[in-house]
Amino acid sequence: MKYLILLFVMALAAKNASAQNIPVLCYHQIYTGGNHKNDLLHISWEQLNNQLKTLADSGYHTILPDELLMYLTEKKTISPGSFIITFDDSHKEHFSIADSLLRRYGFRGVFFVMTVTIEKPGYMTAAQIKELAGHGHIVAAHTWDHPHLYTTGKMDWEKQLIHPRKVLEKITGKPVWYFAYPFGEWNDTIISYLKKNGYRAAFQLNGRRENTVYTIRRMMVDGRWSGTRLQQEMTRFNKGD
């Protein structure tokens, strides 16, 4: 009987996870000046500000991964307008620009950090990462050096999964429960190691939908989108498009 109950609970969690309709936004590099053009990997300070202001003015508000996980697995109620905002790859502008803009609009974000970059030119320092956590953001793991995972499934698990988590926990003084796959590439092997090593959930990009909290989908936000266009794309995401 206990086994049947366990199977039912697992099936219910899978069903809820497959119904993910909370937008999870993904940003990479933020720039100032004319060194880049807005695209899928780059967004100007002005454009990011415009997108966030539009969302705030329209009544959107951020939630954090713990809340998303309870929504997906326990059917906890999430209020309309909820979304998650994430930043990948540890760029220094995530602290110098994104943090201040998020706080301006009352948002909190998730920062997926590659630990190989800490203290290197162009990337965040340990002190900045600690300050992000102190501002109420979530600091999460993004491997040590961003390797490809999908084609081979081979990986130095200590180097890429376990050590980065320990480093970030030492810096922030807080547990690290969440992980983002480099390039959005994932497979059953890495999921098994994430579970084994205590990660609660993991985030991909716009890949295939799966009934698991270890393949939570994210929207790659195009830096060319206006705030209105971003809202439209988030609505499409809500509908499962």
Results as ranks from 00 to 15, higher is better:
R104Y: 03
L72C: 12
E131M: 03
L64M: 08
L72V: 07
I63M: 02
F112S: 00
R104S: 00
G59V: 01
F95L: 06
H135N: 12
F95V: 00
G109Y: 13
A127C: 09
R103C: 02
E67K: 15
M124V: 11
V113E: 14
A126M: 04
T77Q: 12
V110A: 13
R103P: 00
F112R: 03
T115R: 13
T73V: 07
K75W: 04
G109E: 01
Y60S: 03
Y60E: 00
D57A: 15
Q51E: 07
P65H: 10
D88W: 06
K76C: 01
P121M: 06
T115P: 11
L68C: 03
T62G: 09
G59I: 08
A126S: 15
K92R: 14
E93W: 06
Q51I: 06
D57L: 08
Q128L: 10
I129H: 04
I63H: 02
H137V: 07
V113F: 12
L64A: 04
H135E: 11
E93R: 07
F87A: 02
A56V: 03
T117M: 09
T125W: 10
L102H: 07
T125F: 11
L69V: 13
D89T: 00
M124G: 14
Y123P: 10
L102Q: 12
R108S: 15
D57Y: 02
E74M: 14
G81S: 02
S82L: 03
K53T: 07
Y60P: 01
E74I: 05
Y71P: 08
F112A: 06
K130P: 03
K120W: 07
I78G: 04
E67F: 09
K130Y: 05
L55F: 11
D88Q: 03
G134E: 10
L55R: 07
G122C: 09
H61G: 02
T125A: 10
I85C: 02
D66P: 00
F112E: 00
L132V: 04
S96R: 11
D99Q: 04
K130D: 07
H135M: 13
